[in-house]
Design a protein around this nucleic acid. Structure first.
Length: 525
RNA sequence: CGUGGGGUGGAGCAGUGGUAGCUCAUCAGGCUCAUAACCUGAAGGUCGUUGGUUCGAAUCCAACCCCCGCAACCA
């Protein structure tokens, strides 16, 4: 009996179509996910990597209006931009979809109806701010006015006052006005669908409690969120733009983004695997979600709720990898302060693999990552170029000049054991989502290789057996680097005339091509 | 105020009970195959503060201070 291979779903939180990807997105979610996925594939796992653009929501509508274009056009434009930048950064999805695909809408409808029938979704009536001038319901925070306690002029409903921390309510805010048009909004009754989260509170708490492989931030955050119990949460909105509600009488409303977008993971799996999608969500399968930490509760509470309430016996998230924040030159990024770096600008300024390497070596896994150009340049020039790159170059050049580029198989047990152990240890780091630590172990490895070059004194003895030893390190580096900087890794391996067959080491011998410098230093003004 | 994360040599970080480590920068030596790259050695820290537990604490407990974030349809 052949045991069925475990299937792995690797997903990244859906980027929102209300802006372009910046370096925070890349460091917080997309790059670590890509590295992990590449690693998974190389270890022979049946692993798929999915995401897609989150196309809906008020943010998109308002931004589109500002630009004077249709929200569909606006969101499509950003969808294309996300696709483009991910492609350019070698973030290689098996499926990068968006939440306007037919399959997504159909999937959302299926889930919605299913949950409605089983009473996990119910209709409730509530009062919502309504702007009679704009003729539409507006989100709480778009109602601005004066704080009743301290008279601060920048108060927004449902938020704490920036000055005195009072929670601002619609009935207490002074001179409320609509953020969009400036007129005074009113409260108006409306019926909405609610996710009855409290029904599965016990199950969800139990799930989180038992999850010992969650990072501290994920577990603590989720438990804190659920501590005082879960409440019904509205999942529909009075808007035109979004996924429609598949029930008669609600044509004026749509399904709220945060509910619908989570189902995007399932739609994307369907789009990729058609009828086999469920194999990645059920039975012998594991799902792993990468995101920045502000998305934690959606994945640790809401998504589990949807999966539990659905009657397909879907697995709950196996792992939720949430990262801390990225700071730019010591400060939070801010569009309004023009303190900001788009991914595409970083890419053209630093180059793909330099950027990937720097970010990977500093991922905000446990604490914030302070992105500093000076440090990027330093790391690229001293570590990637002088340490790793120079080792590869000095070894390849020596082999090419002195041995005609050919090497036969020899015995070198100590070094081969050392290399195998490195693979073992880096394998563990990557399996347990410690990518930053894996990168540092690769650097250590390269450091050791340089020491070997010196102790073997090959420039004196020109011993072919020593040459054999040294070239093993080059080959190992080529493979070790492949999840992190795939393009450079390919360059190394192609000089060696090797293909990357997996994340493991086998002795290298053969004939190499003419070497060239793979990691040049960078100089920036 | 509440809550999540963090505070370790000049900079960036690792280290969850047993003589404080790594990378960069600095200084001194060595080498010369290589991208003025590489190697060796030195200097540099009372591990935010105070108190406690322990034979022993960066590591556990308590209180406090500071930084970043969240409570918003901003990653």
């Amino acid at each position: 009996m052949k045991k069925e291979k475990e299937k792995k779903l690797i997903a990244v939180s859906l980027p929102y179509a209300n802006g372009e990807a910046h370096i925070g997105h890349i460091a917080g979610a997309y790059l670590p996910a890509d590295i992990y996925h590449r690693f998974s594939i190389l270890t022979g796992e049946d692993s798929i990597f999915i995401s897609g653009t989150d196309m809906h929501g008020t943010g998109v509508v308002l931004s589109a209006e500002k630009e004077g274009i249709d929200p569909y056009v606006f969101s499509q434009k950003h969808h294309e931009k996300f696709k483009e930048i991910f492609g350019k950064l070698d973030i290689k999805f098996d499926m990068y979809s968006n939440t306007q695909s037919d399959i997504h809408i159909e999937t959302v409808h299926d889930f919605f109806l299913d949950l409605y029938k089983s009473k996990y979704i119910k209709i409730r009536e509530e009062e919502q701010p309504y702007c009679e001038y704009d003729n539409r319901f507006i989100p709480d925070r778009y109602v601005e006015g004066i704080c009743p306690v301290c008279n601060d002029k920048n108060a927004k409903v449902s938020e704490s006052c920036d000055v005195c921390s009072t929670l601002i309510q619609f009935d207490t805010i002074i001179e409320p006005r609509c953020k969009i048009c400036g007129n005074t909004p009113i409260l108006k009754k409306t019926k909405n669908f609610f996710l009855e989260l409290e029904l599965l509170e016990k199950e969800i708490r139990n799930y989180i409690d038992k999850k010992n492989n969650f990072r501290k931030n994920v577990k603590e955050f989720s438990l804190e969120y659920i501590k005082n119990g879960l409440n019904p949460r509205s999942i529909t909105r009075d808007m035109k733009y979004g996924v429609s509600i598949p029930i008669k009488g609600f044509e004026e409303k749509i399904i709220y983004v945060w509910f619908e977008a989570l189902i995007g993971y399932i739609s994307a799996t369907k789009e990729l695997k058609q009828n086999h999608w469920i194999d990645y969500w059920r039975n012998n399968s594991k799902s792993i979600f990468f995101m920045a930490k502000d998305n934690i509760v959606f994945h640790s509470i809401i998504l589990p709720f949807i999966l539990l309430a659905n009657n397909n016996k879907l697995n709950l998230p196996y792992q939720i990898v949430a990262n801390e924040n990225l700071l730019l030159e010591g400060e939070k990024m801010s569009k309004s302060k023009n303190h900001f770096m788009l991914a595409k600008d970083a890419l053209s300024r630093y180059g793909k693999d330099n950027l990937r390497f720097y970010i990977a070596a500093n991922l905000p896994e446990k604490k914030d990552f302070n992105f500093k150009e000076e440090e990027l340049i330093n790391l690229v020039n001293t570590t990637l170029s002088s340490n790793i790159g120079n080792y590869i170059n000095r070894t390849l050049t020596f082999l090419y000049k002195n041995f005609d580029g050919s090497i036969n198989k020899f015995e070198s047990n100590d070094d081969e054991d050392y290399i195998k152990n490195i693979f073992k240890s880096i394998n563990i780091e990557l399996s347990e989502f410690r990518i930053k630590s894996a990168v540092h172990k690769i650097i250590e490895f390269s450091d050791y290789a340089n020491k070997r070059f010196d102790t073997l004194k090959i420039w004196e003895n020109k011993n072919i057996k020593n040459m054999y030893i040294l070239i093993q390190y080059v080959y190992a580096l080529g493979i070790l680097l492949s999840p992190i900087i795939p393009e450079s890794s390919e360059k190394i391996l192609s000089i060696l005339n090797k293909k990357n067959e997996g994340f493991y080491y086998t002795p290298y011998f053969g004939k190499i091509n003419k070497p060239y410098i793979i990691f040049p230093k960078i100089e920036l003004i």
